[in-house]
């Protein structure tokens, strides 16, 4: 496996688009984290004034920082998706997938090299979110540090969500083999799921939506700020790690489909 990753690293280290998209992804996470407090305070300002609350909400303190930043960071996984699609479709447009096999890779080697990259990219993104949240939490309120480990499982949920998304991109790239068409298909499907989300927003039966690959389950359950309002009767839904089970199943289904296609297709 290490050998496979070394080879993939040689392929990517001098590939400019790889670094650009990775940088855009990380920059977006940092931008979200640094402006989150400002925007939320502006948006809900009037509402808060009505109920006579202070504008200093603990939204970026431990442990709520995990919930809020992971929820938002899921939206910028798109850059990583483009990166994965470009990386896999390149192998077909340059015909290098074929040459790798001729040179002595098994088709399984090719599959594992790509799956490993998806996992590593998801892990990298999760680490960036982790460091950003840790920094943001400490800067916002050092006294909240004792709650550091509360809700830290949101990072795990984030990791699964990015993995399922990137596995889907890998599948699209292998099926379509053209980067432009694959990226357009990815956008089309994303819009479809966002449409479903919008249709059912503010309704109580959201659970079924989490059975769609992209919507499980972070961005279905929107963080509710009403919990900051005293005596609020709104139901606050917390997400447990078990809610990612459908997403994990999707990852396995996608990888199996990729394997079947790779095996059956002529390269």
């Amino acid at each position: 496996m290490l050998q496979l990753l070394q080879i993939e690293w040689i392929k990517l280290r001098r590939y400019r688009s790889f670094w650009i998209m990775l940088a855009l992804h990380i920059a977006s996470i940092l931008l979200i984290a640094s402006s989150f407090d400002y925007f939320i305070t502006k948006i809900v300002k009037n509402e808060l004034r009505k109920v006579g609350m202070s504008l200093n909400l603990p939204i970026t303190e431990f442990s709520d920082v995990w919930i809020h930043i992971t929820w938002l960071a899921v939206f910028v996984r798109f850059f990583l998706g483009m990166l994965v699609i470009t990386m896999i479709t390149n192998e077909f447009t340059y015909k290098t997938a074929r040459q790798n096999i001729i040179d002595g890779w098994d088709r399984k080697d090719f599959l594992w090299a790509k799956v490993a990259q998806v996992i590593i990219l998801s892990g990298l993104s999760t680490s960036v979110v982790f460091l950003t949240c840790t920094f943001l939490g400490i800067v916002s309120n050092v006294d909240s540090l004792p709650y550091f480990f509360n809700n830290i499982h949101y990072l795990g949920i984030y990791f699964v969500q990015v993995s399922v998304y990137l596995s889907f991109c890998l599948l699209l790239g292998i099926l379509i083999r053209r980067s432009g068409l694959a990226i357009v298909s990815l956008m089309g499907y994303s819009i479809f799921e966002i449409y479903l989300l919008g249709k059912t927003y503010n309704k109580s039966h959201l659970e079924w939506l989490t059975y769609f690959p992209f919507n499980t389950p972070l961005n279905v359950v929107q963080p509710s700020f009403s919990k900051y309002i005293p005596r609020s009767e709104d139901f606050v839904q917390e997400i447990g790690f078990m809610s990612t089970v459908p997403a994990i199943i999707y990852v396995f289904v996608f990888i199996s489909l990729i394997y079947i296609f790779l095996k059956k297709k002529d390269l």
Partner: peptide, 29 residues
Amino acid sequence: RRKIGAILEAPIFYPYLSAVDNLLIVAKI
């Protein structure tokens, strides 16, 4: 296949990589 050196149709390499990097990939495979 590692004991076989083969070119099929046109030469196939990563266009943005140098000769050395391209051969490094082949050597590692």
